[in-house]
Design a binder for these strands. Sequence first.
DNA 1: ATATCTGCAAAGACTTTGCATGAGA
DNA 2: TCTCATGCAAAGTCTTTGCAGATAT
Lengths: 162, 162
Amino acid sequence: MPRGDGKGPPGWKGRFRGCGHRFTIPRQAIIETLEKTSEHLSAEDIYLKVHKQYPNIGLTTVYRTLEVLAQMRLVFKFDFGDGRARYELSHSDSKKDHHHHLVCTSCNRIIDYTDFIDEEVELLNKTEKALSKKFNFKISNHLIQFYGLCEKCKKTAGPLGG
Amino acid sequence: MPRGDGKGPPGWKGRFRGCGHRFTIPRQAIIETLEKTSEHLSAEDIYLKVHKQYPNIGLTTVYRTLEVLAQMRLVFKFDFGDGRARYELSHSDSKKDHHHHLVCTSCNRIIDYTDFIDEEVELLNKTEKALSKKFNFKISNHLIQFYGLCEKCKKTAGPLGG
DNA sequence: ATATCTGCAAAGACTTTGCATGAGA
DNA sequence: TCTCATGCAAAGTCTTTGCAGATAT
């Protein structure tokens, strides 16, 4: 059983080591924070949460860890248009948890949906293969987002929905 | 024939007026720049191009105009992960020109593709309707991007492709 | 004539970098 | 022991804001 090394189910430590990185307390804390939440946390969000338990972990470390994690493809970095990046664990190993986003352009609310994902993913995989071949491009990820007005903002907003 | 007001084919002036905005020289120049290019320009890119012909148009105006245009849904603002936003005319009236993006995570090259778009758009429309109903969300746009390594970077890059 | 738009400069917000200290293997 | 990671502070980059003058209708 190739796991149970660092702490928590997946072999985080092994993954880090495998990429030439160390699995430190701050990194572990940051991953745990990402695992615990179902929200789309910004670097500062993560920093604040981590900071409660480990007050000496700094924002810089959060940024640096997220960069490492993104490079290892363990987290995905999103831009929802509000000027700060959001981070999510990939979960891409276990296909469960895969979802796409609905972004409210008025209040910036994000809704995850998993409905229709199967059909989408099926088409995406097909498309990915075709694109890979045509453009000789090694595709490793995709992003799908729908933009519009959420229930609340639909009522409030005028024709422009600003 | 409800056009030919400002300059150039579409009734830009009318559209601006319709939204309570004025159609000024800077705005016209910015739109023309967007129309002329097939690239994904950043605010500064646009500024530099516009600036050649109208040296007194400032970067601030470019940002402000792009914001207005985005609000009017005439341009779409993209984030390709390199820290600066890119802008593209929507073209959404004439369905032609609609494309999605392949983003190279190594060199940040962007490839537009229109292949398979039809199938994708068909599924997207279906999904949009279903999502709109389920979440009572008024969807007005979507974003699809594939991330990976382009031909060049595939050769150069190691297993991580950083 | 008046509300909107523009440009410059300054401010703001998020993210990255430099460097000495501390921790992991 | 030696390399990698961390934290603080400072710097960097893109973007937004304030305000007086210019412009469009």
